[in-house]
Amino acid sequence: MYPTKYHTPKTLSEAQKIFAAAASPAYLSGGHTLLPAMKLRLAAHSDLIDLSAIPEMHGFTQKADRLSIGAMTRHHDVANSALVAKLIPALAGCAGSIGDRHVRHRGTIGGSVANNDPAADYPAALLGLGAIIVTDKRQLVADEFFTGLYQTALQPGEILLQVEFPIPQIAAYAKFRSLASRYSVVGVFISQNNKKVRVAVTGAGAGGVFRVQSFEAALEKDFSPSALVTCSVDPAYLMADASGSSEYRANLINVMARRAVENPGKTSCYN
């Protein structure tokens, strides 16, 4: 790791000030992507600004028809929250399916969302639930937030504070894991809210997480696995790597979508 200066601001404004004054700063949340990259010398930052001591970035709040989760909330805490389990059980399951025990005790929802790894689970959950991303400057809907591989609408220095989830009637997540990394080769998050269906796919898109309108239309007509049998995704828009070809991923999107529909309220892991 190249030399870096580590900061632990106690307030948001302190964090913003440090960021503004530094040469090449980075915010640090769980650090599970950033720190390995820095250790491998693939990333270098003059200053690391750890956001974990800022109180308003933690915990759960229910506001009318929304569940708000602080950006620095750990995956383990989302997975084990009684409130999340009651309101959106598939989201609790999704958090509990990320990585391993060690990852879940360090990794945060905000870190995962801001990093937008094309195989991460949370981007699918946010897009699949139609979440709202609250930053220190503005609010964004998930459809506008995820803009490409490891790319988001966040501007330099902008801090992601909370994620607000509309509470759906049904939500479910099904994912097929890589045997090496345990990231999703394909993960499909589905929700139904006031007759509107959202289907979001992670792990497969050549441009990162995406929605599948044809699946959504089919499920809005008939929310059942059989409605998806004739649906397909064009492999041309999908990734290909050692975990599988784009055709294989297209198949898995269909299979995982059906399995999500078959298991409402649940997160199902395969492989």
């Binding site: 890589s178 090496a180 990394s181 990231y183």
Partner: peptide, 16 residues
């Protein structure tokens, strides 16, 4: 070589 880390070299795991 294409398998230079645990991200792409699949190890046996107890749950497999």
């Amino acid at each position: 070589p294409q398998n230079g880390s645990f991200m792409d070299y699949g190890m046996p795991r107890f749950n497999n």
